[in-house]
Simulated assay, not measured.
Amino acid sequence: MPTPLPARPAQRVQLPAEFDDELRARLAALDTASDAHAREQRPENTVLAYRADWKTWTKFCEQLQVPVTAATRGTLRAFVEYLWKYEERAYSTVDRKLAGVAVTLRQEYDVVINKRDTKSARELLKDYRRQAEKDKEPARGRGKAPAMRVDALRQIVDKCGDDIFGVRDRAMLLLGFAIAARRAELAGLRLRNIVEDPDGNGLLVHVRVSKTDPRTVPVPYGTNPATCPVRAWKTWVERAQITDPDRHAFRAIHATGSVQPKGITPARVGDIITAAGARARIEVLFTGHSVRSGMATEARRAKKDPKAIAQITGHKPNSKVLHGYMQIVDQWDEDDNALVGIGL
């Protein structure tokens, strides 16, 4: 038998109260750097939304005459009532504002809201929604973005010009469709996030700025060169002459046609998608989310497995949102529509 190694003497664990000033300074610097990195990973529209959520909460607290840090069960329920009944906000907006307030309180004031208090506020919100549905009130909010189907996508990219604006818009639309991108995800892409597959199969797109978990989408060459996202991307990179891996993949363009160093905002991405649809005279008013819903819808229509679709969209396989995309297609399928094949 091998001779056992002598046991090492147990080392005393140093407690935080015993840290010296030099260690505290290094840990503080690490905290600051990690906070900055976390902020950089957050989509710009999420940052702006949280800022707006906090502004709403501040206004509400002033009216209620309580400190902004007083996030209790009572104040949170009152906040929900205020948003739902008096400001007539959509369900998703109220739910997000609760999240935005919680995030800001935790990050800026070190105040952590009791989970039971947050749950009670959300339960009240669900009660309001159930009552609204029972009373058959009109749906609030903008509703789902219309899906940009492949036939519409073909018409749209065909109307993108051959100038630098058209080259960028074509690449953005096709790549956005291929990775089922939210507008913030397209705006957040850096050049380093889009790389060629080593075996020449297409592109590997690393979606790092996302409201959900990061994902990597393998984008193959398209069978139709006119709608191939890989070819469109390569054309844009060549024409724009962008090489800095840390700068945005899609850039602002000056009226003179000069490609700018700065990227475009999520709102601008949505505007470009909407304008491209209007330019092609598509009757449907597409929005920044339309390429995402369009990809999921078309993939399901092609009988792709929901798990395969979820890997591209970043949804959980049992996601209610993803299931909603499925229903758009499945409602006419003989296996899912009880009226098909019964002899009518």
Rank of each mutant, 00 (worst) to 15 (best):
E87Q: 12
I253P: 07
P146Y: 01
K304D: 13
T216G: 05
A38K: 14
R89H: 09
V195Y: 10
A132D: 05
N318R: 07
V217Q: 00
A147H: 05
M172N: 04
I309N: 01
N318M: 05
F250K: 08
F250D: 07
K115M: 10
L153Y: 00
R251K: 14
V217D: 04
G188I: 02
F19S: 12
E88Q: 11
E44W: 11
R251T: 13
Y50D: 09
G200T: 04
N114R: 14
I282F: 02
I272W: 03
R89Y: 05
R96F: 10
A25P: 13
A178Y: 02
F79Q: 02
K136R: 11
V94C: 02
P16N: 04
D197L: 03
V217Y: 02
D95H: 13
R190P: 07
R116K: 15
Q41H: 12
Y86L: 10
R292Y: 10
V94A: 04
R77M: 11
L186A: 01
T3S: 06
R300Q: 09
A252W: 14
D335Y: 06
D95I: 05
W236R: 00
A310P: 03
L5Y: 14
A249S: 05
S34K: 15
D127A: 15
A278E: 14
A296N: 04
D53Q: 04
A25N: 15
G176F: 04
S210H: 03
M326T: 03
E40A: 15
M326G: 07
L64Y: 11
G176L: 02
L203E: 06
V157M: 07
S290E: 07
A267I: 15
V13C: 13
E87L: 11
T313R: 02
R239F: 07
T243E: 15
T313I: 00
V291I: 09
T104N: 14
K316N: 12
P220V: 01
A145S: 07
M295C: 07
R183L: 09
K159I: 05
P306T: 03
Y221D: 01
T56R: 11
F19K: 10
E40H: 13
R192W: 07
V207N: 01
A226S: 11
P220W: 00
Q331N: 01
P218D: 06
